[in-house]
Each structure stands twice: as C-alpha cells, then as structure tokens.
Design a protein around this nucleic acid. Structure first.
Length: 419
RNA sequence: GGAGAGGUGGCCGAGUUGGCUGAAGGCGUGCGCCUGCUAAGCGUAUGUAGGUCAAAAGCCUACCGAGGGUUCGAAUCCCUCCCUCUCCGCCA
C-alpha cells in the first residue's frame, strides 16, 4: 500500500507506475474519495468537539444540582448528526481502503521498463552448461528410470500438479530442504522458523496477495482461511501491527513450507513433470530492515540464494525483472534461473524482492528509529530455493550415461543419515 | 465442542452505582540535577493514528480485544464475534 499523502503529491509518478506494472487502478477516484473523506472527517471532528464540550457542561450542571434539560435536548440533534456523518465516513473510508489496496508498488527507478520478460535485464551467470557425451534426457524420463516420482498416483489421490515423490526422489527432496535450511542458518546467520501453512485473510492482504490474487489461491471457505502460496506470507506477517525496537533490526528469518498455487489460467503451460505444480516445497528467506539498508540487503540476499546453486554445482544466471514482470508488491526483483540440460532451457528457481515499505504499510510493521520517530520497516524476501525445478536441474545436470544420477557432494551428508 | 475466568499504554497494574481518566500507581526508557565512579536519590519527559498547516509548534478528534447498541455523555451498561488461560470432552 502506498501512503495517501504520497499519492496526493505524486499523482503522475503513481499513474506511470500503475501503467508500467500493467495494473489498472483509478487514481482520480481515489483522490476524489480522499477529498470527501477529509471533509467528513473535519465535520465529524468539529461536531464531536462541540458534543464533548457540552457533555462536560451537562456534567457540571448536574453536579451542582442545576437543570440541564435544555442542553440535553439540544444535544439530541447533534448526536444524531454525528451518527449520520460517522456512517458516511465509515463507508467512504472502506471504499477508499479497498481502492488503495489495488494500487501496486512503485518500481525502483533503475528497474527496466517493459511489458514482458523480453525486457528483463541480464545481470550475471555462474558456471557453464555441462557438456555430455550422450544426449541429455529430460527429468521426467530420468525420474521414471530411477523410480523417483509418481505423478499418476499423485493425480489419482488429489489431482494433476500434486506430485508424489518416491524412493530416491523423496529422499532427495528431504535432503534438499534440510541442506538449504541449514546453509542459511549456519553460513548466513538466518534464524529458522516453522510457521503455519494456512493463514487468514488479513495476513494474506498484509503481504499483498489479496485482493488481487484471490483466484490463484486455495481457500477454505468455511473459515475464510487460505493455503499459503509462499512462506513469505506467514513469515512477513509475523510482526504485523508491531512497533519493533530498533535494536531488534535487522531480522533475518528462514523457513521451509510447502506452497499451494491454483495456477488458474496457466493450464497446459510447462506442465511436464515437476515444472509447474499446485503444491511444491520451498525454503524462503525473509528480512526486516532499516529503510536505509534495504537495497544493499537485496543484493546480499541474491548472493544468499546463489550460494545454494553454487554449492549444488548448478549453472545459473541472474536476471532483473522489468516493470511488467515485477510482482504487484515488489519494487525491485531479481530472479535466479538454473540451467536444465535435458529441457535445454533456464528455469526460474528463486525470486528475490525488495518491497520497501509497501508490505510494511499494509501489515503495519514499524520500528522506532534512533530519532524516536516511528517508521515503516522495509521487507524483503527471496526463495532459497524452490525444490521442484532445483530437482529438475540436479537430475538433468548429474545424469549419467547409464541412466543413473550422481549425487551432488553438498547433498551427500544429508541423504544417508543413519539412526 | 461444553463450562468458567479474563482481554486497559513498552511491561505490570488501578479504574465496572456511566460524567475533566488518554487513562492513577509502579516498572522500564529519554533528558537534566546530584554524589570520586557505580548503585541509589531528586526533577522532568515518555503511546499510535487522522484532521488543520507549506512544514513545525499548537489545537481538535479517535483509540482501554473487534464490531454494533443504549445514552446528552461509555474503558465502565447491553448484544455479537475474536483471542488467551483453567477444567471437561474429542483427537494426532
């Protein structure tokens, strides 16, 4: 959410941002409503001040055993007027808030402007595409040969896009999650958290998924709860409606959760094997930082995510998303794309974003700065990483001529833990 | 799910025959004073949000879990909901 005062003073900038992000939002309506809201607020305050004054007078009179009937009668009308104004005010405020929640964040000035991924900016890459003396197979074939995946039974018990990992596949999945968590905790100083996989509407709104993406979410109607599409949602909202003492910052959290996405409207796109799923596992890093530091931290978090791919020995590249590709709440986003030799293409495995104070304002996450002022924190998050496509890259990169797959050194200790 | 108790400021904790209580008192914290240092002590300040304003100060308004109601006036009375704790039931 943007600050209303900021919108009032930067109308053109906000309009441009909405356009660049391919969003639709009626700023003029917001400004008009805001105008009405302030007028009503003024009327309410003025009338209420009068009421408070006279009420005190009535109290005094009664205390002195004087007659206050006239005053009380007068106040009857005032009281009714106040009720009317207050009702109107509530309606306008509700409308205004609903509109405000649909205004996207403003992209950082350096973000490339563009409508689709062709405008994304190449940043850097690491490693090289592995050369193989045989034709690289795709992960679904490798998985089948090694008994790692059972998509058919997954769709039988739930539906398509709900994978069943079996044997080595299940073990590898578990190893990956444990390795990635341990890495961020031990090497990069994150604190591990384990959070609910189901959240309420307020939480979903706090990070910006609602109201825009309601149709992309699995919802539990009876309780108005939602299955999380990413750990970002519960973890970022951990500190909603709080004012943090400055010495608590920066906060660095990492957590594993499954992620649930309906992927409405993307049927048939990249549906093969593990490429696009309704349920997948992900380790997510979340940071709460002082506004002055957020862009330095963004770069750091990209490196935190990259470290996993490096440790796994997977070739990847870093790109910066253009305005049209950057999500609703983000000001600046980098994606990590890992090379999948069998598929012959790069796959997105991580997205690292700086939301500046956009989520903080929605969720009410503030801190008391050194000058005593209360300010919104900046929030960031980054996947480190999503497992399915990482798994694809591992299978396809480490496949052997005989159809088996080698295990990356970094994962070996996590694969065969004896009890 | 059932029964009971309770939800007040950063924390603890008063306030329920409705009326200068945004809220006593204590703790914590900031600043100042004081005593070689420290501790103690004394003084003083210390919520968030909205409005007014170019801005600040100031002033006004709201907020005692949330929403609604009664009333000239509600932290205090009534209703609904949420949450916490204790006990019971159920269950991993």
């Amino acid at each position: 959410m943007l600050d209303l005062k900021f919108i009032r003073n930067n109308v053109e900038l906000v309009k441009q941002a909405i356009k660049n992000k391919k969003e639709k939002a009626d700023l003029d309506e917001i400004l008009a409503k805001d105008d009405i809201r302030r007028k009503l607020q003024f009327d309410f305050d003025t009338l209420k001040a009068k009421q408070n004054q006279v009420s005190t007078d009535i109290a005094m009179k009664k205390k002195n055993k004087e007659d206050a009937t006239d005053l009380i009668n007068d106040m009857g009308t005032v009281s009714n007027n106040l009720k009317d104004i207050s009702t109107e005010l509530t309606i306008v405020e509700t409308d205004l808030n609903a509109l405000l929640l649909r205004i996207p964040n403003i992209p950082h000035p350096e973000v490339p402007i563009g409508t689709d991924e062709s405008f994304n900016r190449y940043i850097r890459e690491w490693g090289t595409k592995p050369e193989m003396r045989f034709t690289a197979k795709e992960h679904s074939e490798i998985a089948a040969q090694n008994g790692m995946l059972d998509m058919l039974r997954g769709s039988k018990i739930t539906g398509s896009g709900f994978p069943v990992y079996t044997g080595l596949g299940a073990k590898l999945e578990r190893a990956l999650i444990n390795f990635m968590l341990a890495y961020q905790v031990q090497k990069n100083g994150y604190e591990e958290v384990a959070v609910p996989f189901i959240v309420n509407r307020k939480t979903m709104t706090g990070t910006g998924q609602l109201p825009k993406l309601e149709n992309d979410m699995y919802r539990i109607d009876e309780d108005d709860l939602f299955l999380i599409p990413t750990a970002e949602v519960p973890i970022t909202n951990l500190y909603s409606d709080e004012i943090l003492p400055i010495n608590k910052l920066p906060i660095k959290l990492v957590g594993y959760t499954p992620c649930f996405r309906r992927e409405a409207g993307s049927y048939g796109k990249d549906t093969k094997g593990l490429q696009r799923l309704h349920q997948f596992n992900k380790v997510e890093m979340v940071r709460f930082v002082h506004p002055d530091e957020s862009y330095a931290v963004l770069e750091e978090m990209v490196l935190n995510a990259e470290a996993i791919l490096k440790a796994l020995g997977l070739h990847y590249r870093v790109i910066e998303l253009c305005t049209g590709d950057t999500s609703f709440a983000s000001a600046r986003t980098y994606d990590l794309e890992v090379w999948a030799p069998g598929a012959g293409r790069y796959l997105e495995v991580s997205s690292v974003s700086n939301f500046e104070d956009f989520q903080a304002r929605r969720a009410g996450i503030r801190f008391r700065d050194n000058d005593g002022k209360v300010r919104f924190v900046h929030t960031l998050n980054g996947s480190g990483l999503a497992t399915p496509r990482t798994m694809i890259a591992i299978m396809e990169t480490y496949q052997q001529a005989d159809g088996s797959i080698a295990i990356p050194e970094a994962l070996k200790p996590w694969l065969d833990i004896t009890i």
